[in-house]
Every structure is written in structure tokens, then in C-alpha cells.
Computed example of a mutant assay.
Amino acid sequence: MSVQIHALTTPPSAAQVDGWHEVLAAALACDSPDIPVPARSELAARPATDDPRVRSLRWLAAAPDGRPVGVAAVHLTTDPDGERPDHLDLYVHPGHRRAGAGSRLLATAADAARAAGARSLVADVVAGTPGDRFAPARGFRRGLALTWLRLRLDEATPPGDAVLPRPGYHLRVWDGVAPDDLIETLARAKTAMADMPLGDLDYGAFRWDADRIRVTSEAIARRGDLLHTVAAVSDDDGEIAGYTELVVPGAGDRPALQYDTVVVPAHRGRGLGVWIKAHMIRLARERHPGLTEIEADNADDNVHMLAVNTRLGFRVVRRTALYQLDLTR
């Protein structure tokens, strides 16, 4: 099949959004039926709500008769202080696989990323799907195994000791951007993520500061989503000892997504992780009575956080792997 690759305009046309949505809906229904399909309106709005420190390029693959058969996006980090690799999303319509669309899209995306100075691309692939065979066959290296879990809020009952106060700490809760008196210590706590398990990924790190936190939080708000943060703050010095973030979709049509959960190394072993997450579950119930589920991803190497999530009632829904493609060869 002769495939034509079209770069999406900014903003994308109605036909481009329709094609993008058609491919994504079909691919998710086939490979990952537990993942809700984004609404067409959300896809149309994405280019305008991208993080300003990320440059996103998107392509649509079409058959000779114009039918959409695949989509790809590369998300390039433009922040000079960022060291993390750039990311690739690639989907091919199940009815048009093994006909060259995926390979053409990958070649187009890799060439564009390489021209922009990217050193590698990372893609999240659902285990056992065609992508799990496609990626290694085209030079990707399997870097990190992830387990995705969901919590049913109508069934969740955190253990009684999970919500008990922790001596020497108090809770702070906020929406959106961190308050001025905590934003610097939050940046230091985020930097503590440098020791998170990364398997064999060459992942680098971000240099977190107050400005980066503001930009990231504001990008979530521009999408129409809500960011909630629960932090454990040390009574001794006012430093954040641990925090957890939850992003609730503004449209209310998908599970809430657990973002970071971090306990600073000097404060580990005191039950802070389960404490802040249990409080976040209670907050989600109170603030969003229509919300039914929370989803979290967990590196398989991070056995401690997997145990915390399991204790709180999260259950496995799928497994994925992060694959990395070296663009310097």
C-alpha cells in the first residue's frame, strides 16, 4: 500500500482531527480497551494546550483513497535545562497494519526529531500488542517495565492506620500552582525523584525550579484539567518531605491520573507515602463525587510504591514497557 504522510497543521483542520480520532479510537479499542478514547474536542485542543517547553510535531498517514491509517507525534523538549529524552506516540489502525504505515511514520518522526537535535525517542508500548514486536524490530531497546493500576473510589477503603497523623509532620493541600511559601521546597522535593527506578532507560533529569513548576501546572490548567497536591511538611524546618499529585480531567470522562508521588530520601521509612496517598483518595471523593476511578503507573522495579498502591486498593489493569530508540547511530 502506498502511504502518504501529512504533517498536521496548527491548528489542525477538522478533517485532520477526524482522521486522528478515528485511528486512535480503533487502535485503543483493539490493543488497550481499558484506556478511554480521548474526545474529539480534546484532540482538537491539544496543539493549543501543549506545554510551552515542549514542541510537538504530529503526522497523519493516509491510504491512496484518503482513508486515515496511522498517526504519530513527537514531543520535543525545548527547555535548555531539560535533559530527558523526547517522546514518541505512534498508532496504526488495526485494519491497515503490516502495510508500511507504521514504518513510514516512524521514519518521518525520527528524521524530524534528529533534525531538531534529539538524541533519542522514548515510546510507551502496551505489553503483548503488535507494538511490543514492532519496536524492537526497528531498533528500539526495552528500557523499563511499568504496571498500570486503577483504584475504584466506590470500593476503596484505606486502612485505618494509613490516615493517622505522622508525628513531626503536617499536611498541606492545594490546587494548581503551589503556594509561594512552598514552591521552592517543592522544587527540591521534585529533584529527589532523581533516584527513582528507571531500568535500562537513558533518561536524564530535569532541573526543577519554581518557574518550571509554575509552567507545568499552568499547562495542565490550559487543558481544562484540575491538579491537586497533598504534601507532608516537616514540623522542624517547613520542608516538604513528600507529596503526591492527582490530575482530574475537567470533562469528567476519564479516570483521574496519579502524577508524582515522592518521599524525600531523608524522610523515608515513616509511612509518609501511604499517608499522603490515603488523604488524596479522601480528597478526591469529597471534591469530585462523580469521579469513579484513579489510575497510576508504577515502575516494576519500585516494589515499595507498588506495595503502597496495592495496600490502598489499586488493582492491575495492564502492563507496558518504555522503549528507547537511539537517534545518534
Rank of each mutant, 00 (worst) to 15 (best):
R207V: 14
Q258C: 06
R329D: 01
L322G: 00
A321C: 14
V317I: 15
E295Q: 15
R40H: 10
V308A: 06
V263E: 03
D181C: 04
L76W: 00
D237I: 03
G102C: 13
D209S: 02
T191P: 00
D124T: 13
H170D: 05
H228Y: 09
D225N: 13
L153I: 08
H93F: 00
L88W: 03
M280D: 02
P249F: 11
R84I: 15
Y259M: 12
E22I: 07
L227C: 12
D132S: 04
R207I: 06
G273K: 06
D154Y: 09
L182K: 01
T108W: 06
G102E: 12
G273H: 10
G117D: 07
M193H: 14
E218P: 01
R84K: 15
S2A: 14
A48T: 10
R223K: 14
Y243V: 05
G204M: 03
S41H: 11
E184C: 03
A101E: 09
G242Q: 08
R282E: 08
E245L: 04
P165Y: 11
A219N: 00
V69D: 04
P289W: 07
W20Y: 14
P94H: 00
G143S: 09
R287V: 04
N298E: 05
V215K: 02
G238T: 04
Q4I: 11
Y323M: 11
P68D: 13
